[in-house]
């Protein structure tokens, strides 16, 4: 008669398999992929060639398609009390713009 497998053996086995799969994901992420690297370089080259500035993640509105190029008032562009009406507005933070100091001259 075959010996009955103890529940602890079964549980530890499940845990060991899960832990091995976890370690495998870490290794998988650490292995450099020549094909992905080549694709990434190709995309980089396209960005450089066309002078692209944004990801094509959200194509619904112009200030979500090109958040870095949008003017500073784009979220309230329609009328003064207009709320952001695209769902992406809740996923995308406002662009991190640099404040460039400007000199002021008095009008003539």
């Amino acid at each position: 008669m075959a010996r009955r497998i103890r529940p602890s053996t079964r549980a530890l086995l499940v845990l060991a398999v899960a832990a091995a799969a976890f370690v495998a994901t870490l290794l998988d992420a650490a292995i450099p992929r020549a094909r992905r690297e080549a694709e990434s370089n190709e995309t980089r080259a396209l960005v450089a060639r066309l002078g692209l500035t944004d990801l094509a993640l959200f194509t619904e509105a112009r200030y979500t398609r090109h958040p870095t190029q949008a003017d500073l008032h784009s979220a309230f562009q329609d009328h003064p009390l207009a709320l952001e009406h695209f769902p992406t507005g809740s996923l995308l933070p406002p662009p991190r713009h640099e404040a460039v100091d400007r000199e002021t001259a008095l009008p003539d």
Partner: peptide
């Protein structure tokens, strides 16, 4: 569906694994 929002065109892309 969450990322797509109201946009019709959505890129299909495979991310390189990073942890």
């Amino acid at each position: 569906p969450v990322l797509k929002g109201w946009s019709v065109l959505y890129p299909r892309f495979q991310l390189t694994p990073h942890i």
